[in-house]
Write a protein that binds this DNA or RNA. Structure first.
Lengths: 151, 151
DNA sequence: ATTTTTCTGACTTTTATTGACCTTTGTCTT
DNA sequence: AAGACAAAGGTCAATAAAAGTCAGAAAAAT
């Protein structure tokens, strides 16, 4: 039993496989017309099947010349990054080391790791209680991992 | 899909790169005719893409021999960012713009600016009061400038 | 019979395009 | 010098061309 959503999903994934650079651009309205559905169904498909945790990144633009861009991320990278993930119990206390390791493992360039070290460094957060600062660094580090995986 | 506005933007930036002294002079009507659009669309492009925020200065003159002059500012990093520091009120909405600008000005790579945008973004500091978050961003931004200057 | 998933449409927001009308500057006539 | 006209560019509001949101209906799955 194949629903329209399923068909759209399959179609988009086909396009993705055939595309250069794991990336495609479609127009929501055109796609909806092609599949004879309402435009918002495209959003439904995107939000249920092309989610971040499945390794997709969606970017869109409204207005004249608008588009929907779907990027498929490299899962291998995600896996390899997995070991850096903060999962509640664990938290880092030495981010300098982490960023250096990320550099050595080629996830970051030298400059990138320097930049991050300076942002995470003491002066910026020094006026906060240690615990608070630690929490903020954790949150920021999560964002960093996220960003790196999207490269 | 590319819009006319986008094409005009690209064209002007191309001219700028090839021009002496980071400055070009065009005629609004001629440009509009070349791109087969109404003259006021040129103003639209200028006001949405060649803004002060992005480091451009527009001067115009009406009447016979009128022109539109577009200057790309090429100040040092210090001067450019000094502007943001002087008014002090770094509005955090603006950090995206700042990092994009730093990328456009070749102080940061695309990736670096993406990284920084994600670190400065809402999620990382969302649990803090706005004022506190603003202060932290300011401090971190100072560190970023410092690091960039050492590159 | 419920719960979950899919589908739909009304309403919103963002970005781009167009055109009617306005202002400034330069030049030509008288 | 004044006025008329031409040759620029400016403004703003209306419209068009996208995509987003969200709640409720319908269909499918359990």
């Amino acid at each position: 039993m194949s629903t329209i959503s399923k068909k759209i999903e399959i179609y988009l994934k086909l396009l993705l496989r055939e595309a250069e650079g794991n990336m495609i651009e479609v127009q929501r309205n055109a796609l909806a017309e092609y599949f004879e559905c309402v435009p918002s169904q495209i959003n439904y498909v995107l939000s249920t099947r092309f989610t971040t945790d499945r390794g997709y990144v969606i970017e869109t633009r409204r207005g004249g010349g608008g588009f929907v861009r779907i990027k498929k991320l490299d899962l291998g990278l995600q896996q390899k990054m997995g070991k850096y993930q903060i999962d509640g119990q664990f938290h880092y206390d030495n981010y300098d080391t982490i960023f250096e390791r990320l550099f050595e493992e080629d996830f970051l360039t030298k400059r990138e790791s320097q930049l991050l070290k300076s942002v995470f460094g003491t002066p910026a957060l020094s006026h906060l209680p240690d615990k608070e600062a630690g929490l903020i660094r954790e949150n920021m580090f999560r964002e960093v991992l996220n960003a790196v995986m999207k490269f």
